[in-house]
């Protein structure tokens, strides 16, 4: 399969993620949509890295670090969501304004 096919799949995933991010107010659903975008970005990155044998290992190394950081980011956001739910009994992001110092 040509690289453009992988990039096409990545574009579709990216668009679905953007749609979810724009239409949802639930913090966890927004996080899940952001994760779709992250997966789309990884696919696009590796598709482009596979075009050149010189850039392949560099792309792989960056993706390994990106996946690790994404796992950490998921932990942080889910912790904020749980804290917010305990304090407000809601996950609506509009409620976040009330958390301002």
């Amino acid at each position: 399969m040509e690289t453009s096919c992988y990039l096409f799949v990545s574009s579709i995933l990216f668009a679905i993620g953007i749609y979810g991010l724009l239409t949802r107010r639930n913090m966890i659903r927004m996080l899940l949509s952001a994760e779709i975008i992250f997966n789309a970005a990884l696919l696009a990155f590796l598709s482009l890295a596979s075009l050149d044998a010189g850039y392949g290992p560099v792309g792989g190394a960056i993706v390994v670090i990106a996946i690790s950081l994404s796992a950490a980011e998921v932990g942080v956001i889910v912790s904020i969501a749980i804290m917010m739910f305990r304090m407000r009994r809601a996950l609506d992001v509009y409620e976040l304004k009330k958390f301002r110092g």
Binding site: E2, T3, S4, L7, I16, I18, A44, L51
Partner: peptide, 22 residues
């Protein structure tokens, strides 16, 4: 917004037509 974004990305990415052999 999502549809326009997908179209733009497909247009940009259509430049890369090589076969990955890595």
């Amino acid at each position: 917004a999502a549809g326009v974004l997908a179209l733009i990305m497909v247009k940009i990415f259509s430049v890369f037509s090589a076969e990955p052999s890595f």
